[in-house]
Amino acid sequence: MRLLTHNVLRSPMKGVVEGYPLRIEATDVQMVESEVKEEFVKHMATTLDWGALCKAAAEVGMPEGSLPPALTPELLEDSSFLEALHRVLMDMHVVEGTLVCPETGRRFPIAEGVPNLMCTEDEVR
């Protein structure tokens, strides 16, 4: 699971008000370098929940200060920043671990890089 995916995920449980960000409890994190798509990163940056991304980066064990505390329009023009953001969004993979719903505490396992967000009809009705 990439951090980009984590950033858009929301808890599917019923009764949650916001339901994100889901807490990451990672046991295996891998970094796989991939081709940088500057345009996409620039396009996505405005959609991201920045606070959640910073929190997630800390949870997967990235050093503090790898992301600026806030996103500014000037940063979006800086190609070295876009590359750094790409590394965080697209290259950090949570391979094994758990996602925890912040409101209900329901745990969703991540196995072989695929999070399992299946829940029963009772949990969503």
Binding site: M1, L9, P12, E35
Partner: peptide, 28 residues
């Protein structure tokens, strides 16, 4: 799907009948 080498895709297991588990206004 996981066995494919993909640079730009990601996967998630979920039943769409229980409602998609994503934040509002994220996809294009």
């Amino acid at each position: 799907a996981n066995e494919r080498e993909t640079d730009f895709g990601d996967l998630c297991q979920h039943d769409m009948g229980t409602g998609l588990p994503f934040r509002p206004a994220t996809f294009d």
